[in-house]
Design a binder for these strands. Structure first.
Lengths: 187, 187
DNA sequence: CCTACCGATCGGTAGG
DNA sequence: CCTACCGATCGGTAGG
């Protein structure tokens, strides 16, 4: 048994039932250990969640940061961010649901450290939106921050209805959303 | 003591800490009753959540349905739906957070009945989007359903960052979002 | 609406 | 990694 296997089952269970509704006994059953034996491998239930959320947000931060920091026009960066986001969602649906919606169950320092990571995500979207406006690619807009975090909200919400074996591929959805979003930002 | 007062405190507590993290003893403390005495007024914790979620979704359904069913151009209806949504959010922030995000804690028939209400909400947005395309007001689009539920997702997500005493009014935000969304749908 | 309490379950630990 | 168990808390009820 390894911490990674425990984390794997915890991701499955947290994404299915949400953190407070998953007992340590659910996790220990899934990895065929007795409840107390979990603590050989992990520190606490909350620490398990923390690591999952950190890794989940990290997946998005590490993929999207170089896209936003690239030299491309903002329009291309928006398109790349959206298609990258949807591909990551397809490949990481369970951990994404936890990272985007269940960080609220963290407390104290754990919560504070995750809020910083979330701010980094928001910052990426603010940056590409304001870059596009500054470059004259996007319409000037009264509240660029509202536009940016609404885009984050739109993309986050896809995790609630996206299905890996659904009729629409991640690329189909990304193309559809990019067209609409870029139409709204330009012209 | 009335069921309405219990519901009022439950809304405050559920929106602040989420349903599973609120104990019946938290609620009974808030209304200055002993835990067991709550059950003179309510049936169960889950029934309390059910009624809150039903009422919360009902607020949006009853306001948005006549807007979507009006004879106005789809563009005007989109603008009206967005501004109405933000005004309702401002006036009902706590119950909105519960109605939009905490229905997941319902089970069985309770969950099923709420999923029907949620489908009605989605249906309103699908309708106004497809109407606008049919009328030639909006660009033809490969997946109108994706556009519609993404708009629902965007609006739902506002409950997670909107603050009643924030720098931006609900009307400011609605105007900003309408401009972007209509820009994306038209032209 | 209170008194008094129920069985179940929770996250977690001591000691081996 | 198991045995055995901890105190705390959970939603809810019987009887008055």
């Amino acid at each position: 048994m390894s911490p990674a296997q425990i984390e794997r089952e915890a991701i499955r269970l947290f994404s299915e039932k949400t953190y407070p509704l998953v007992g340590m006994r659910d996790i220990s059953d899934a990895v065929e250990l007795l409840p107390g034996s979990l603590y050989v491998h992990i520190t606490s239930k909350e620490d398990l969640l923390l690591k999952i959320v950190e890794r989940g947000i990290g997946i998005y931060l590490s993929a999207l940061t170089p896209i936003v920091e690239s030299e491309k026009p903002a329009q291309d960066r928006i398109r790349d961010v959206i298609s990258s986001y949807l591909r990551l969602l397809d490949a990481n649906l369970d951990i994404t649901k936890i990272a985007m919606f269940q960080w609220r169950y963290l407390n104290g320092e754990n919560l504070a450290s995750i809020l910083e990571l979330r701010d980094q995500i928001d910052g990426l979207f603010v940056r590409v939106v304001t870059d596009g406006i500054a470059a004259g690619e996007f319409n000037s807009v009264r509240h660029p921050h509202v536009v940016a975090i609404s885009l984050v909200g739109l993309l986050s919400s896809t995790a609630q209805w996206y299905s890996v074996q659904g009729a629409l591929s991640a690329d189909d959805i990304a193309e559809q959303l990019s067209d609409i979003v870029l139409g709204g930002l330009t012209g």
